[in-house]
C-alpha cells in the first residue's frame, strides 16, 4: 500500500511534463526558428523557462512521490 498522492506530487508531475515539452521545443527552435519570432526570441525563454520547470518539477515529483506505507 502506498500513501495517497498529494497535490504537490501532481504539481510536480505537471511541471515536469511541461518543462520537458517546452525545453524540447526550445532546443528545436534553435535549429528551426519560427517564421515570425516573438519579441526577445534571441533570449530563448523556452530553454531557460523550460529548464527551470523541469528542475522544479523533478524536485517536487521525487520529494512527494507516494511512499510505501509501513
Amino acid at each position: 500500500m502506498r500513501e495517497a498522492m498529494s497535490i504537490w506530487f501532481f504539481a510536480g508531475v505537471l511541471f515536469l511534463l511541461y518543462g520537458i515539452i517546452i525545453l524540447a521545443e526550445g532546443f528545436w527552435e534553435l535549429s528551426h526558428p519560427p517564421a515570425n519570432p516573438p519579441v526577445l526570441f534571441n533570449l530563448h525563454p523556452s530553454i531557460w523557462w523550460g529548464a527551470m520547470m523541469t528542475v522544479a518539477g523533478l524536485a517536487y515529483t521525487v520529494r512527494f512521490w507516494p511512499r510505501v506505507k509501513r
Binding site: 511541461y18 526550445g26 526570441f41
Partner: peptide
C-alpha cells in the same frame, strides 16, 4: 502573451 511567447510557452 503573443508578443513574447513562442510555441509551447503560448500553449502554457
Amino acid at each position: 502573451l503573443v508578443r513574447y511567447c513562442s510555441p509551447g510557452l503560448l500553449g502554457l
